[in-house]
Design a protein around this nucleic acid. Structure first.
Length: 295
DNA sequence: CAATGTGTTGAA
DNA sequence: TCAACACATTGG
């Protein structure tokens, strides 16, 4: 026997050049032809792809996060244990859909968005009136804080693919620290249908304005938003869980003709000042039942 | 064209 | 459920 040559079996330990790909020691991590590593998790008889990564450890970490979100705290993981997670991360994980988490993992933005959410949790706690006021319905676990509303302009729904947030409103409700101002933030807004819109929010120094950019044009398209329509921003705060705060966006058609009339309608809505729970669009019924998730 | 992610299979 | 493997699809 010519076992000496070993021509077709040279893929054992060293050269991973062709046929055989090196296996990973990590669960959910698979080799890619180009030497990188893929992460995947299975659910309901099918694979959910979690993206590709430069090294095994990164892919393994991504799998762990997905496993914790998909299967809970007792999930079998590679490295990360639930003890590693602080409370905020657990909150972050469970307050986002599986699709959202997967999207973050695939885009490598999970860490960034986790940090963002921590900032917002902190901000929400600070801004909340915790003086023991009894005006808020004690039986409601959630309060709705109206932020602001805008009548969208033609340019907001045009080809510029952005919406200007009135400066005063932006600085009041969506304060950006200097670092975030340049890079921008990726904010998650939930609409009345439960669809989450992930919009980039940043400051354009050239025009000295705050804008929603990436993701906005899709929102305009899907909602069939027209100039004169109203877009409302608000925040829900879940009192039960460490002031878990969530951002929301809703829109409603303008009355077609009179720009001024609609502008005046904005003033009728009463912000937080009263301390009461603001009820908005309680019975909004919109068309378009498609699309559960938007990039 | 290179890289990604799916179709598919067989093992556990 | 899982990883291995082949390769169709994607996207710059």
């Amino acid at each position: 026997m010519d076992m000496i040559s070993g021509t077709d079996d040279d893929c054992s330990e060293n050269a991973e050049s062709r046929s055989k790909l090196p296996s990973s020691k990590y669960k959910g991590v698979v080799p890619q032809p180009n030497g990188r590593w893929g992460a995947q998790i299975y659910e309901k008889h099918q694979r959910v792809w979690l993206g590709t990564f430069n090294d095994q450890e990164e892919a393994a970490q991504v799998y762990d996060i997905a496993a914790l979100r998909f299967r809970g705290q007792n999930a079998i993981t590679n490295l990360k244990t639930t003890n590693d997670q602080d409370y905020m991360e657990k909150l972050f994980l469970t307050s986002h859909s599986k699709d959202e988490i997967v999207d973050m993992l695939r885009k490598h933005t999970y860490g960034q968005e986790l940090e963002q959410s921590k900032q917002y949790y902190a901000a929400a706690s600070c801004h909340m009136d915790l003086s023991g006021s009894n005006t808020i319905n004690p039986f409601s676990e959630e309060t709705r804080e109206f932020l602001f509303e805008k009548v969208v302009t033609p340019s907001d729904v045009g080809k510029l693919n952005r919406m200007v947030i009135p400066k005063q409103q932006a600085e009041k409700h969506f304060a950006l620290n200097p670092e975030s101002a340049s890079k921008g933030l990726l904010l998650n807004f939930e609409d009345e249908l439960g669809t989450v819109w992930r919009l980039r929010y940043c400051y354009w120094s050239s025009s000295q304005s705050y804008v929603l950019t990436k993701g906005w044009s899709k929102f305009v398209k899907e909602k069939n938003l027209k100039a004169g329509d109203l877009v409302c921003f608000w925040r829900s705060i879940n009192m039960g869980h460490a002031h878990h705060s969530k951002l929301h966006i809703d829109c409603k058609p303008g009355n077609g003709s009179d720009f001024e009339e609609m502008q005046s309608r904005v003033d009728l809505l009463d912000p937080v000042q009263t301390g009461s729970v603001v009820r908005l669009f309680g019975v909004n019924i919109l068309e378009k039942p498609d699309k559960l998730y938007c990039t």
